[in-house]
Amino acid sequence: MTSSNGSPFLSVILPVLNEAETVTRQLMALRVFRERGAELVLVDGGSSDGTPALAAPEVDQLIVSARGRAMQMNAGALASQGQVLLFLHADTALPLAADDLIRRAITTGACWGRFDVRIDGRQPLLRVVERMMNWRSRLTGIATGDQAIFVRREVFETVGGYPELPLMEDIALSKRLKRLARPACLRQRVVTSARRWQKHGVLRTILLMWCLRARYFLGADPQQLAILYGYAPRQR
């Protein structure tokens, strides 16, 4: 899965922070894509639990950047070689044919897209959450990071990459990309962890996310929203 000039078709960019408990399992699952020619770029935001050492044998590039998912993904994009960039959260698993599905979407005219999502928890309310996420994304053309956003490199560069926000960076990128084209909404599902819903309770997390999203669209400061979400302010 390489181009005529030897560069990979797909670069998978994985931002991580203190993921020692899960990173090895995640990277083993991604090995099949490397075997088919995809590049895997892991961007560590300053882990203190040994994540980089665990990850190093299973990636093509390991980068350390300033903490912050948007900054980490931008750093990974800059270092990567692929024609198409796939941004994958550390707690999200791709379908086995993800690389082929992305290739088909891109070669038939898409300049960016995302997958439908399934949440791996058993609570019935999570089925409602995932259906609403997929339906809302298809209706609005806005994708979330949980849905594994992919984009042609030149398009990502044209829109200036991820806005370096502490929260809602995926929404902000989607808005930029949507000005150029609507996304390819692939119905095959990535599987994302339910850990953030389980940590604080499903209903409470749903209400919090609705509130944060509404405040963001009304112009609230993303830094303050990040603090409400539970992110510690980044040290400068």
Score class of each variant (00 low, 15 high):
E164N: 06
V32C: 10
M133Y: 07
G82S: 08
I206M: 13
N134L: 09
L180A: 05
T22L: 12
L30M: 13
P183L: 03
Q224C: 02
R118M: 12
A214M: 14
S174L: 03
Q188L: 02
V190M: 03
A79V: 04
F33Y: 08
A105S: 13
L177M: 07
F156W: 09
A20I: 08
I171A: 09
V12Q: 03
A105T: 07
R67F: 07
M73I: 04
Q83H: 13
A55D: 02
D146V: 13
A29W: 11
R195S: 15
A110P: 02
V190R: 07
R103A: 14
R176T: 07
R104E: 14
E19V: 02
Q188S: 14
L101S: 08
V155F: 01
A53Q: 15
L180Q: 08
R152P: 00
F87W: 10
Q26W: 02
R67M: 10
L212Q: 06
G50V: 05
V84A: 01
R36V: 00
A181M: 13
I106E: 00
R182G: 15
R114D: 04
R182P: 05
G141K: 01
Q235A: 15
Y229S: 12
L207W: 13
L180V: 08
R189W: 06
A194T: 02
I106P: 00
D146W: 08
R114S: 13
S193L: 06
L27W: 06
L10F: 01
P52N: 09
M73E: 04
F87S: 04
D120I: 11
L228F: 06
A38G: 10
S7W: 03
